[in-house]
Design a protein around this nucleic acid. Structure first.
Lengths: 338, 338
DNA sequence: TTGAAAGCGATACCAA
DNA sequence: TTGGTATCGCTTTCAA
C-alpha cells in the first residue's frame, strides 16, 4: 500500500486537511508545520494519488491522442506519426500532463463518447485522416477542448496545427522551375483532401510565378495503397509528352515513382527529376537520394500540445490556427551531385 | 456536466446503489429494474466516471509505456518503436485498457517513483535501452507488475518479450555461408549488450555449423551514432583480407555500410554481400534492397500487453519469458535478382 | 493557524 | 430485491 496523506497526518499528529494544505503550499499554514510535512512526505516518497486528486479536482491532468490510422497492418506512416506524438509528449509531460494513446478508434462515435463522458482526459489531439467533420461536430457539442494536428480544418472555431503545405509545394516546384523544367507532373492524393488541395495550390502558384501554363494532364491521382505511386508515374511516362520532372504528394509516392522511372531505363535526375514531401528517413537512402520538403514534426506536435494545454487552462481562448513553415531539402533526385 | 449515476437514480426513483448494481449486472437485481436502468443509461449516454471508478476499485485500467529513447532529436528508431507501441495499444485497448505514454523519463527514479506511488497505472511496459537493472530492482520493490519489451533480461523473475536474436542472426549468416561466403564480417552494437551478445552468438553458431573458424578481426564495433556503420564498414574493407560478406546488427548500420561499399567502387552483392536486421522500411528502397531479418514487432507488442494484463489480473502468475521467431527476408544485397 | 466535515462519483457491504 | 451508508484519497470551505 502506497503512503497516503493520512499516514503523514497520523505520523505528525496533524489533521489530513492541514497536511494537504501544507503539501499544496497554502499560505495559511505555519512555516514550521509546512516544513515538517514536506520533509516527511519526501522521506516517505509520498505522491498524491492521481485518481483521488483527479476526482476531487475534476481534472485528470491527462490529454488524449486520437490516432486514426488508416491501415492497421501497415507501418508506412509510422515514422511520421511517431514524431508528431513525441512532440506532443515532450511538451505535455514537461507541463505535468500525461499522454493517453487511443489507437483503435473503431465505431468512432462510441469510443469518443466514452472518452468524453467518462472524463478520461482533459482534452484531445486528433491525428490522421477520416471524416473529421462528424468528430469535430461531436466534440464541439461535448464541450471538450481539442485540437487537430497535421491537418487544416475549415470550421473557423476549431484549432489546428498543420505544415505550410502551400509554400512547401511552391518551394518544391519553384526549385524544379529554376532548374529549367517546364513540364512538371504532380502525383496527388485526393483521398487526403485538405492537404492535397493545398499542395496542388502551391504547385499552381509556382507555375504561375514562372508564367508556365497549367496542364491538367500532368496531374495524376494516387492513394495510400502500395504501388499507387508506381502506377501514377508510369501513367505520366506514358503521356504523349511526358514531364521532365515530377512533384509527389509525399516521399512514399516519390520513392515508388523513382522505381518506375528506373524500370523504364531512365535516369534520375537527368531524364526525370523527382521531389517528394515529408523527408522521411527512407528519402535519404534511395539512389539517388530524394529532394523533399522537410516538416517540423516534433515542433508541430509540441505546438499542438501547447495550444491544447492553454485552452484547457482557459477555455475562453480563441481558436488557434497555426501553419508552420517547412523547407526544401535539395538532394540528388533533382540536382546531380559531384 | 456529464451524466452521473445519481441522475439516473433520481430519474427512475431508485437508489444509487441499485443503479450501480444494475449497470454492473449484479445477479440480485430484478430483470425489469435492470432493463430500465440500462435503457436510460443508454439514452443518456451515461458512462461511469473513469476516475471515480478507479478510486473505488483501486485499479486504473491503464497501463504505462515507458520509452527510453536514447536520442531525443533523432527519429532513427521511431518506426521500430512505434510498431511495438501499436501492438501494445491494440491488445490493451481490446481488453479495455488505455495506454499512457511516458517518453521523457529523465531523473528516472524520480518519475518512476511518482508513477508507482501515485498509482497512475496498473502496470508498466519498458521499452528501450538504458540501465534497466536499477529500474527493474526499483519496480520489483514497488511491487508493480511490469514487463520488458524488446530486450532479454537476465534476472529470472522478470517477464520479457524479445525477438529470437540468436536464430535470426544464425539464419542470416547461414544464408551467407550457403551462398559460399567464408569471410563474413559482423558490425556489432556493444552498447546494446544483451541483443548484441545474442546476435553475435547466432553468428558464431552459424560459422560453427559450417566448420568455418571464427576470426576476431572480422568483428567491428559500432554504435547508435550516425556514421558509425559507415566507419565500421570502411574498417572492414581496410583489412588485409577483407570479408566478402557482412552481417550488421541492424538495418541502419547495414545501410551505412552499403554506402561505404559503394564509395569504394565495389558492387553489392557481387563484391560484398550485406545483411541487416529489423526489416525497416528503408531496407526496401536501397539499391540493391537489403536482405534482412524481419521481426514481428506488432506481435511482440501485443504479447507484451497480454503478459502484463494477465499478470495484473493475477499477480501470482510466474514470469513469462518469451522469445518470438523471426525470419530472413532475402533481397538483392545478397542475391542478384533478375 | 489548525481541524472538522462535506463532497468528488462510483462500489460494496449489510440491513431492511 | 432494494436502499442506506461507509469508503476510496484527496481538496476545500467554514469553524474553532
Amino acid at each position: 500500500m502506497p503512503v497516503t496523506i493520512k499516514d503523514i497526518a497520523k505520523e505528525l499528529g496533524l489533521s489530513v486537511s492541514t497536511v494537504s494544505k501544507a503539501l499544496n503550499d497554502y499560505p495559511d499554514i505555519a512555516p514550521e508545520t509546512k516544513r515538517r510535512v514536506q520533509e516527511l512526505a519526501q522521506i516517505l516518497d509520498y505522491y498524491p494519488s492521481a485518481t483521488a486528486r483527479s476526482l476531487r479536482r475534476r481534472h485528470t491532468n491527462k490529454i488524449g491522442l486520437l490516432l486514426f490510422l488508416r491501415i492497421v497492418g501497415s507501418s508506412l506512416t509510422s515514422e511520421y506519426e511517431f514524431e508528431l506524438i513525441r512532440g506532443v509528449a515532450f511538451t505535455a509531460e514537461k507541463q505535468g500532463y500525461n499522454l493517453v494513446l487511443y489507437t483503435t478508434v473503431t465505431r468512432e462515435a462510441d469510443q469518443l463518447m466514452r472518452i468524453c463522458r467518462a472524463r478520461e482526459v482533459d482534452g484531445l489531439i486528433l491525428i490522421g485522416a477520416g471524416h473529421l467533420e462528424e468528430l469535430i461536430a461531436f466534440l464541439s457539442r461535448e464541450a471538450i477542448p481539442f485540437v487537430v494536428l497535421n491537418r487544416r480544418v475549415e470550421q473557423p472555431d476549431v484549432s489546428f496545427i498543420a505544415p505550410d503545405n502551400v509554400n512547401g509545394a511552391r518551394a518544391a516546384v519553384c526549385h524544379l522551375l529554376e532548374l529549367g523544367h517546364r513540364r512538371i507532373g504532380y502525383i496527388g492524393r485526393p483521398d487526403d483532401p485538405e492537404t492535397n488541395i493545398d499542395r496542388l495550390a502551391g504547385y499552381r502558384q509556382a507555375l504561375a510565378e514562372f508564367g508556365v501554363p497549367f496542364d491538367e494532364r500532368l496531374i495524376i491521382p494516387a492513394s495510400f495503397e502500395s504501388g499507387s505511386g508506381y502506377r501514377a508515374m508510369k501513367a505520366l511516362l506514358d503521356l504523349p509528352s511526358p514531364p521532365t520532372a515530377v512533384f509527389a504528394f509525399n516521399d512514399h509516392l516519390a520513392i515508388e515513382a523513382l522505381q518506375a522511372v528506373k524500370e523504364r531505363g531512365l535516369q534520375v535526375p537527368a531524364d526525370v527529376a523527382l521531389v517528394g514531401f515529408d523527408d522521411i528517413h527512407s528519402s535519404l537512402v534511395t539512389t539517388p537520394p530524394l529532394t523533399t520538403v522537410h516538416q517540423p514534426l516534433l515542433e508541430m506536435g509540441s505546438q499542438a500540445a501547447q495550444v491544447l494545454l492553454d485552452r484547457i487552462a482557459d477555455d475562453s481562448l480563441p481558436p488557434i490556427r497555426l501553419t508552420l513553415p517547412v523547407h526544401l531539402v535539395v538532394r540528388g533526385s533533382t540536382v546531380r551531385r559531384t
